[in-house]
């Protein structure tokens, strides 16, 4: 399932893009068509990535590299390529896909994206037609954390039930009512009634752009 619709992204720092420069930075204005964007997680934190989503801005291809640590050995973090030259535009010279939203999923990556400390995007734009290219709204989503929660022990809690009705009968009748409301909700029609006048007061004198 896609996670970006309902879960929160991991808080991380997206560093400003660094363009690969050919020759002297001041005099040489030839565009190399390569740009690096680094995304770092707060110091000492690592994530198991489920999905990375972003909005493209005229990037033709993206390569994703991950800095992963080996559990237990803090020092031995290593860079690996998780995805090479994923095409984001149909044709680098034309608009198709130039401003589209997209996601890279765990399953698309060539290495298991666990214990990741930093993500590096290598962006390429071979066409000289564009002044600038970048990725915007980069968001990293974590794999579900259910295995962490399972460690918590549940505290047994018994409140005083004196004088209250039998909980099982109450719950079954509530369940029935709940089921009824569910049925009502799922059967709601989405067909519009097809009218838009409001009892007689249909004198319109001004239109506005929403």
């Amino acid at each position: 399932m896609s996670v970006s619709a309902d879960s929160e992204p991991v808080s991380c720092t997206v560093k400003p893009p660094v363009f690969l420069q050919l020759g002297d930075a001041k005099t040489d204005t030839v565009k190399s068509g390569v740009c690096i964007v680094d995304v770092t997680l707060p110091f000492g934190k690592s994530v198991n990535i489920e999905e990375i989503s972003f909005k493209n801005f005229y990037t033709a291809y993206v390569t994703v590299r991950l800095l992963r640590k080996v559990p237990g050995q803090e020092a031995a973090a290593k860079w690996t390529t998780a995805l090479r030259d994923l095409a984001l535009m149909e044709n680098p010279h034309t608009e198709g896909g130039s401003q589209d939203y997209s996601s890279i999923h765990r399953a698309q990556m060539q290495v298991v994206p666990d214990h990741v400390m930093s993500v590096r995007f290598i962006l390429r734009q071979p066409s000289s037609a564009w002044m600038n290219f970048n990725l915007q709204e980069i968001k990293i989503f974590q794999k579900e954390v259910s295995d962490l929660l399972s460690d918590l022990t549940l505290v047994d809690f018994r409140p005083d039930l004196e004088g209250l009705p039998d909980p099982s009968t109450v719950s079954s009748s509530i369940q029935q009512m709940w089921a009824l409301t569910e049925v009502m909700q799922t059967n709601q029609t989405t067909a519009s009634i097809g009218r838009f006048d409001v009892d007689g007061c249909y004198d319109v004198n001004l239109l506005s752009v929403p």
Partner: peptide
């Protein structure tokens, strides 16, 4: 395109223009 809107007594009337 986006349809224009007009507000009449808090309710919305919409027209294709």
């Amino acid at each position: 395109a986006t349809p224009p809107k007009s507000y009449i007594e808090g309710k919305m009337g919409v027209e294709e223009c």
